[in-house]
């Protein structure tokens, strides 16, 4: 039995040890915003925030998250009230198919909290663990840059 908090809600579930945190969030809790792109630890689509740090939820078992606080894309803004980062993604056309987007957002949230992101190079370096095949990254960088410049948080 594990007990953990996801986007402020406490869940208790019986899980098999080998169940990945990504599969747990998606299939046990129905939070399908977290996407699974490779299960090889490369693409970053499954990135969530665990105890304040962005992590790959495909490289973490649900049992390891017992007692943890998790933030997923569902915990950012809502459809009617997008967070500043989400809004900036829309304004700058930082997503196309939308599959990598939850991972990009959660990485973006962690980067914005931890780094000054003074240059675009820093943003690009910070995003280098998240693959996107649609955007060529340019608008993603621009969207994050705009949030840095607005200085009103993630």
């Amino acid at each position: 039995m594990i007990k953990l908090t996801v986007n402020g809600i406490v869940y208790e579930r019986e899980v098999e040890p080998r169940l990945s945190l990504a599969d747990f969030l998606r299939h046990e809790l129905g939070l399908t915003g977290t996407h699974v792109g490779c299960e090889q630890g490369v693409c970053g689509a499954c990135t969530v925030i665990l105890n304040g740090d962005s992590v790959r939820s495909c490289l973490c078992f649900a049992v390891q998250a017992d007692g943890a606080e998790i933030e997923t894309v569902e915990g950012l803004g809502s459809i009617d009230n997008l967070s500043p980062l989400q809004k900036s993604f829309q304004e700058h056309h930082a997503l196309q198919c939308g599959f990598c987007t939850p991972g990009m957002l959660m990485t973006g949230v962690d980067l914005l909290r931890k780094y000054p992101l003074a240059t675009d190079e820093e943003i690009r370096e910070g995003l280098s663990g998240n693959l996107c095949r649609c955007t060529g990254y340019q608008h993603v960088v621009r969207a994050i840059r705009a949030v840095v410049e607005a200085g009103n948080g993630d």
Binding site: V73, E74, G98, P102
Partner: peptide, 12 residues
Amino acid sequence: EDPRMLTGHGRF
């Protein structure tokens, strides 16, 4: 398309 994709409400 964006609001649903940005909030995890896309349906893949």
